[in-house]
């Protein structure tokens, strides 16, 4: 996980609730959602590093804490009366085709592109990015080389929280409402997408481009099944089959390659 982002779903809806109540603009909204995300991420980072608990356990625990508190405080209420500028979203290069269907670059895709570019720059073009990979590969070795593990963890989890916060805004814009229970249970889907893209669960490997491909694979598969006319009830079965086949084939070919290397 250290090499890549794992995103436990965060209680970022709180941010949006606040933001919408107080009528903030785009920038403030993003900043607020990001800040709440970062805060949640930092809590995780502290537990992971200082208590040396495995990050899976910490994120399951904090997932329960954040989610429980969120529902408890908000009472599970929806917010649908969003300000107009938020409901309209952002549309670039808008045009309509002959039959009147509008096309354009919307907020969701813009944020997605920005997020991927920032993540790519962070991981590939900065010193910190290399440190993250190093820590994922071997934490003890990274520590002895003088990398500050706590600082890297703070950055990784903080960034994760920030992106999750932004993602919550994007989701809210798409759904045109804020629902505390939406996205809950998506953690494993996200994990699947990232790992399909070649990231390792033990850390140290994985690329942003791979993650894009993983997400695209699942999205195209689900969309394609609907287009082909498969009943949407069978959607999940195909997704599961794809995941299982993909990881099996990858592992199998890895094993073959290792065996071939051993013989030579």
């Amino acid at each position: 996980m250290f090499g890549r982002r794992r995103r436990p779903i965060r209680a970022d809806f709180v941010a949006l609730t606040l933001g919408i109540h107080y009528g903030l603009g785009w920038f403030a909204l993003f900043a607020l959602a990001g800040a709440v995300g970062i805060l949640c991420g930092l809590i995780n980072a502290i537990f992971v590093t200082k208590l040396r608990i495995s990050s899976i356990i910490v994120s399951i625990a904090t997932l329960n804490i954040f989610y429980g508190l969120l529902i408890f405080i908000t009472g599970g209420k929806y917010i649908t009366s969003l300000p107009k500028f938020f409901r309209d979203g952002i549309w670039w290069f808008e045009y309509e085709d002959a039959s009147g269907v509008p096309y354009g670059l919307n907020l969701q895709i813009l944020v997605l592109v920005v997020a991927f570019v920032v993540a790519w720059l962070l991981l590939n073009r900065t010193n910190i990015g290399r440190q993250i990979y190093a820590m994922g590969g071997n934490k003890d070795a990274a520590q002895r080389l003088g990398f500050h593990v706590f600082r890297i963890n703070i950055l990784v989890f903080g960034y994760l929280g920030f992106v999750a916060g932004i993602a919550s805004l994007v989701q809210a814009q798409l759904a045109q409402s804020v629902t505390p229970t939406v996205l809950v249970g998506k953690e494993l889907d996200v994990l699947a997408a990232v790992v399909l893209g070649g990231a390792s669960l033990t850390g140290g490997t994985g690329t942003v481009f791979g993650a894009i491909l993983g997400v695209a694979l699942l999205a195209i598969l689900q969309n394609g099944l609907v287009l082909v006319g498969v009943s949407s009830y069978w959607n999940q079965w195909f997704v599961g089959l794809t995941i299982l086949c993909a990881v099996s084939i990858t592992a199998w070919s890895n094993r073959r390659r290792l065996a071939a290397k051993a013989i030579n």
Binding site: V195, G240, I243, A251, N254, R255
Partner: peptide
């Protein structure tokens, strides 16, 4: 096949 347990069971879970 040597797949990591989280992934393999994630696949069978979804299936």
């Amino acid at each position: 096949l040597g797949v990591s347990p989280i992934l393999a069971t994630l696949g069978t879970m979804t299936m």
